[in-house]
Design a protein around this nucleic acid. Sequence first.
RNA 1: GGCGACGUAGCCAAGUGGUAAGGCAACGGAUUGCAAAUCCGUCAUUCACCAGUUCGAUCCUGGUCGUCGCCUCCA
Length: 520
Amino acid sequence: MTLQLYNTLTRTKEPLRTAEPNKVRMYVCGVTVYAPSHVGHARASFSFDVVFRYLLHRGYEVEFAKNFTDIDDKIIEKAKAEGVHFCEITDRYIADFYDAMDGIFILRPDYEPKCTEHIDGIVAMNAKLIERGHAYAVDGDVYFAVETMEDYGKLSRRRLEDQEEGARVDVDTRKRHPFDFALWKAAKPDEPSWDSPWGKGRPGWHIECSVMSSETLGDTFDIHGGGIDLLFPHHENEIAQSESAMGIDRWVTHWMHNGHLTIDSTKMSKSLGNIFGVNELLARYHPETLRMFYLSASYRAPLDYNEGAMNESEQRLERLYGTLGQLDARLGDSVARPAADDDGGWRRPHLYNAPDPLEGVDPSQFAGPERGLFEQTRRLMTKVEEAMDDDFNTAGALGHLFDYVRRLNKWMAGEPDLSDAGLRAIATGARDRFYRIGAILGLFHEESVAFFEGLRDRRLKFVGMTEAEIEAAIARRNQARADKDWAASDAIRDELAAKGIGLKDGPEGTGWIVLRGVGG
RNA sequence: GGCGACGUAGCCAAGUGGUAAGGCAACGGAUUGCAAAUCCGUCAUUCACCAGUUCGAUCCUGGUCGUCGCCUCCA
């Protein structure tokens, strides 16, 4: 089975084709750094993080570049409003971006070029496009002439003739065609600018990606990704520039676009005030909850962010961690979990890469349900890979994991004797599968115990009770229970439940948890 | 006006030309003083509607209805 991916260019799923055998070069359009990262940015980063992780899992050598756009109108505006140098703005939001992405275990790309560090290349590409007759300079601006490109519009499936009627485009008489776009913009007074043959100015939006991808990955490469909103005009124009400058007709092999996020079924927008920052979200939910949420649907499909969906995602995650905790408890040990690097970034050496504990285990020693479980454990990775091979079908892959979890829980409920080497191998193999899949999907960064403690602490902040108050209430209830005063005991329990504290009476006393979906 | 995506159980969501994964909810059970949490079990003769191709379609073709996105330097 080969890895199939949906190519926006051809609108079909195609087998991955790479210029060099076993090596993938991938470029993804990153963010413009002028505001805190929100859940939409996170989905885009996440989508390609999973692509990155899965390519690594499949044994590809991957070179991955993702840029920062660190000069543009909105950045300049913000800097003016605050009366600071624009770098202060970009530095601030680059730091915020790292905080957010490290926080949800996005692997750092190999290259993170910034627009302002590639000005020379951008100027050179402008010059080349003019020289080849694809661009023209007017009053210090440089425009790309879309009509000089035979197949302009091939990615977004637009034809220049179709655009005229009803399209909302600005009428700029200096342009030869309404869809000509700026490669270089003359500087207005007080704006950051760089010298160029056309006077002081700064890069247009699209050209940066053409230049930065070439300078990091090479002239042509295998995968180019970004949000679906970038399809037109951004990616269309990148193609126009790059292919015209190089005189080729296939700059990038595969174009991938992630679907957008809506919030409570409406579009995210500043005016509605429904933009959720990643960092504020992490105060409330476990970081892997957000990943679980993204994993629930195809990366290409639109996805609606809402409280119910997040709570459900956390519940799904708890189910998986619950089983993982059972395995740790029964095996009497745990697998060391990776840590981020000193700068907070997660990188590929941290990925789980242990030898398969089931390798060399003789199946004939198992009978009945154990034989079945052993086989299912063996097959699990194959099933997950089949799903992932089909255009990164994460929902399908998770389905197989949950399917397996049910089977595994059932087995553990029967109290298998893990001092038996064979049965122990099954349990070890099961845990191995969690972490192997976790490395692909970016889950299970904590041990189960730490996970549930973290969940409790996080939720406690929204409950309005301290741990000490809860313990005191439990002590009062225990007295009532000792007196067999069930009414008083239940009253205390109901009171706590109303605040979102669930109690569990067990042989070793009464434990408590914070229930899901509390506070807000 | 142009381009495109989607419509699968109460909700989210995979998927296949031969009669529908998984999760949440719900219900039943184990457990419990009773509960909660957890675990197990049950849960779509049916895949928006109509017509066509086919031995057979949810999956292919055409049409209808509905929802959404892009065409505005928004991932």
